[in-house]
């Protein structure tokens, strides 16, 4: 094999092994599997879009603009969407009534203490045995800043504990950044689209940073980072294990030490806990359909996103990007609604 043939055969092997299955149940377990019907529909959609948008200009189609920021060029779309992030405020006392946040206190000890009349960590500070530790904990909540309180909760609670949700009430609407990304794969590949919702009073300022091509990734990452760095909290669906580490890895790939170390509310874990028994799987699409009653019109399965982006690159045709951008935007809006829904569930409990 000469080197040209080698490169070609490597390219072949780098394509995703798409396992096509007939059963939807099976497809939902692993994302590399795709249902046969969905695959056909998606390819049909892609071909239709290629035909329809042949020769069209990407900026016109999406109403976005090509931005140059010193790091390179990327497509940026900005719009304001009417929607409000439900963020009922929460008082610190709501959280402090959980005595288990004090080191050494477990379920049964808490019960005993409550029976003795200690309702809150605040009331515990003069307790002979627990006073010292209660004071330490209290200090973290009272004067340590939002992060420090969240750290205390993270240490003692599982990531799906409703206390986290409650705690999100400490943050103002304007503290959040809602994040969702589309990528070429799950590992060492580039990101292709970053969606960011910045809730304001009564609306969401919505941004999309789209890669013009792989060689301009850093430019998109940079502008995205500048937008999110001031937000105190990140809201995602499965972002703790995917979106955030993925982005941080891309930053470090380019030698940038930017980090996304804000407070992080990952709705995946809460959803699993709240709706687990009622749903066939915990995909965002399923939750939005079954719980929020949202139906998407044209959509692309996540596993097909790389294929659509590749078509855009190879054919220089904006068509296949349409469902990716819509999909991403819808994910962010869904997250917004999902937080409200989860909080309502919490109140119902």
């Amino acid at each position: 094999m000469d080197i040209g043939d080698l490169a070609e055969s490597i390219k072949e092997r780098l394509g995703v092994d798409r396992e096509v299955v007939d059963d939807e149940e099976e497809a939902s377990i692993r994302s590399s599997k795709v249902v046969r019907g969905d695959l056909c529909d998606a390819r049909e959609l892609r071909d239709r879009l290629v035909d329809e948008y042949c020769g069209c200009d990407l900026e016109e189609v999406f109403g976005c603009s090509l931005v140059e920021n010193g790091y390179g060029e990327f497509f940026h779309k900005e719009e304001v969407v009417d929607s409000c992030l439900c963020c009922p405020s929460c008082s610190v006392e709501d959280v402090l009534c959980d005595l288990k946040l004090v080191y050494g206190i477990g379920v049964s000890r808490e019960r005993e203490l409550k029976e003795e009349g200690y309702e809150s960590i605040r009331e515990l500070i003069d307790h002979d045995r627990w006073g010292g530790r209660a004071r330490e904990t209290l200090e973290k909540f009272d004067s340590g800043g939002l992060d420090s309180g969240l750290d205390v909760i993270s240490r003692w609670k599982s990531s799906s504990d409703p206390l986290f949700l409650k705690y999100s009430g400490f943050y103002d609407v304007g503290d959040f950044g809602i994040l969702d990304i589309e990528t070429m794969g799950l590992g060492a590949q580039p990101v292709i689209l970053i969606g960011l919702g910045l809730p304001m009073d009564g609306c969401i300022e919505f941004h999309q940073f789209l890669l013009k091509d792989f060689d301009q990734e850093l430019a998109a990452l940079k502008s995205f980072y500048d937008k999110i760095r001031d937000r105190k909290a990140v809201l995602t669906f499965n972002g703790k294990s995917f979106d955030v580490p993925f982005l941080e890895r891309r930053f470090s790939f380019y030698g940038e030490d930017w980090s996304l170390d804000q407070s992080h509310f990952d709705l995946y874990h809460f959803s699993k806990r709240a709706f687990g028994d009622e749903l066939p799987n915990y995909k965002l699409n399923t939750i939005e359909r079954e719980v929020l009653g949202i139906e998407r019109d044209i959509d692309v399965p996540s596993s097909m996103v790389p294929e659509f982006y590749k078509t855009y690159r190879e054919e220089d045709n904006p068509g296949p990007l349409i469902p990716i951008l819509r999909h991403n935007k819808q994910d962010i809006l869904t997250l917004n609604s999902l937080l409200s829904e989860l909080k309502e569930e919490l109140v119902d409990e």
Binding site: A7, I10, K11, R13, L14, G15, V16, Y71, G72, M184, G185, L186, G187, A188, Q189, P190, D213, F214, D215, Q216, E217, L218, F253, Y254, P306
Partner: peptide
């Protein structure tokens, strides 16, 4: 499969 960028040559395929 590889792409020339201002930062050097980067990978852009689907699989790791």
């Amino acid at each position: 499969i590889l792409h020339e960028t201002p930062n050097g040559v980067v990978y852009g395929g689907e699989k790791r």
